[in-house]
Design a protein around this nucleic acid. Structure first.
Lengths: 217, 217
DNA sequence: ATGGGGGTACCTCAAAAGTGGTAGTGCGGT
DNA sequence: ACCGCACTACCACTTTTGAGGTACCCCCAT
């Protein structure tokens, strides 16, 4: 398998960068650049036609950006390995890219040798991430804890407690038993917490809370 | 700052590993091991008393495990940098550790030099993660997309559509207007979808759905 | 064509949720 | 000592939900 020649497609709106990348990849006999595209539309078409083993996709492109291109490719059923290449280390982009099916996220300022190494790893089926990305990724996971929206601070302990239980799907009656208070009292707290949060129902409260918590994470 | 001596506390129920780690850290003049603990209880107490710059915490301990210890330390207001050290690369642990305030997650089979290097990075305020961890982390982020629970397939289009709207916090009436059907009909769909999913209320459905979607990620 | 599933609508009924108000207790701050 | 706030409880009342059931339409598969 490692002896097989892998087909690679480059997508970047900077011809110069494509050239450089191509030269880099040429260092490896088992890598062959079979296509290049300078925009998302062409890339999607070519990807569907040629089904390359690997697609190296620039995140910051004019017109349809890399993220959108990525999404559409996956929608079209492209199963190639896709590695995002970018100057950006904006956390949202990373999370979105991976969520949308990217197999790697590399920075353009990465040392060429390392870059080549990572690209080969990506072809091996591994998820490759630039060193600097790791921290951002971790921070993204951590985020849920970090931010405590102002709204939450306005809640009393009891209200906060009850909000949590609502976010578990519990009814007023169950919450009442859980906290050893009357269900009428629970209603009072729910009423107050809804007002403070500017929500219209416990369902909205539950959804809001689950999102705050970052769901199952 | 880099010239200052940093205090380190080791927490691991294997004396041998503590010994080895201590020797490793002794190689660096600016690192001083000021305390050791072999269980969570002691660790929490010592951490609160000594407030070390860095705590190296074993994840797999008997009794109170590392994750629980981590949580309680943070609850107690311990602000030290805390790095988890472990043999496990179970994704849940990683995500939980970081979510609960760990500043790093290192594997015990890491090359000692690298380990030392990472520990120093951690003291510098960086988030340190073992190479192998990165993939797991990325996979964790990706997970939401991948799985499509069997329950969801049993839903009809209409039911699925309505489930989505419930997960936005909408009431039957609002959903009805949104879909141009009567609210009575919405009720029917809700009833069916609750039965199929084995849930007891729209709140549970909303929470369930939001979690399936992976929340805002 | 006959049957079944999905979608729609309507009915009834009981339970749950939400709104308004009153009111007692306990606690921390002025 | 007094005030405000959190927490508790109860009442009355409206709206929303969810569980039954029946019924009609449409489409597709046997």
């Amino acid at each position: 398998m490692s002896e097989q020649i892998s087909s690679v497609m480059l997508v970047d709106d900077h011809p110069l960068l494509r050239k450089g990348l191509k030269q880099l990849l040429a260092l490896e006999d088992e890598l062959e650049v079979i296509a290049e595209a300078s925009n998302g539309q062409d890339a999607i078409k070519l990807a569907a036609e040629l089904d390359p083993d690997l697609i190296i996709l620039d995140l910051n492109m004019q017109g349809m950006d890399g993220l959108e291109t990525l999404k559409r490719m996956r929608d079209e059923g492209v199963t190639s390995r896709i590695v995002m290449l970018t100057v950006s280390d904006a956390d949202e982009d990373i999370v979105k890219a991976i969520s949308n099916g990217a197999d790697g996220y590399l920075l353009k300022d990465t040392d060429p040798e390392v870059l080549l190494d990572q690209i080969k790893k990506a072809l091996d089926g591994k998820m490759v991430l630039s060193e600097a990305i790791t921290q951002v990724l971790a921070t993204a996971l951590r985020r849920p804890q970090a931010k405590t929206p102002a709204e939450l601070n306005s809640l009393t302990n009891r209200e906060y407690e009850i909000l949590h239980l609502i976010a578990k799907g519990m009814s007023n009656k169950v919450i009442a038993r859980e906290l050893n208070i009357s269900d009428g009292t629970v209603k009072v707290h729910v009423k107050h917490l809804l007002k403070k949060l500017g929500l219209r129902s416990r369902v909205e409260a539950a959804v809001w809370m689950v999102n705050q918590q970052g769901g199952k994470l």
